[in-house]
Amino acid sequence: MISRFKQTWAFVYRDYQLTRRYWSWVVVFTVYAVVSGASVALIGVASNDRKLTLTLTIGVLFWSVLSVLFNEIAMSIAFERWEGTLEYTFMAPVSRLIHLTGVSLYAAAYSTLRAIAVLGGLFLFLDLDFTGANLFGLLIVLVVSSLAFVGLGLIAAILPVMSPERGAEATNIFQSILLLVSGVYYPISVLPKWVQPFAALSPATYALNASRKLLGVETMTPDGKLIGQPLASVQSELVTLAALGLLLVPLGLWVFGMAERWAKRTGKLKRTG
């Protein structure tokens, strides 16, 4: 048990040290996230529409957490290919469950800190007031939806295992499709009819629906006061998110195991891409 804890810690330790050593890039990405987030949210300010501003802000914040969480997990294998360490990780006596749990734990902590930094940055550009919002409920939604995004990240992480040349590119396309179909900045109804069914497959759709209800965007008073809905009002979204998490995490581990065995048969682990 202690040995497994140390093995899990190995991935947290490694990723923390890499973040520390690449600190200037972390600053660049965070500043970029703040500026692009503020640029999106300011569209609501320009329209003099508080409801739109908050809709966009919650989209920026949730996407900030979930996309980074997804990206850190999905790209963990691609990073190892670039560094040339993939074979050493795969020949260590560590189960894939422990490996991916370690990667996911660090990704969760990193994405949360990044989102807090983005929120802090948004306060510099926007007059944000969350009085009346159900912030505890938002936290619950974030935690539950994180599980589903971990599962999606695990599934996407197989792409760099299977294709040294194109895996990382495919992972980014996958992430951009999630952004498109999930209604991060707009209602699903504005998407073309043929795209709308895909929204139902994305955990972000449910997370954003729930978070906007809990924030009170839909039930705002005429003078702009937020009336955050109770957690019970988002029960169906929470159940769906939990079900997606419980389905996607084991599915992700299973397909990752399949991809690993395939890569070992075909010699795909060797090449660094």
């Binding site: 497994r4 140390k6 810690w9 190995a10 006596p93």
Partner: peptide
């Protein structure tokens, strides 16, 4: 240290 942790040291 990363390698050592992987092997439970």
């Amino acid at each position: 240290l990363y390698s050592a942790f992987l092997y439970g040291f």
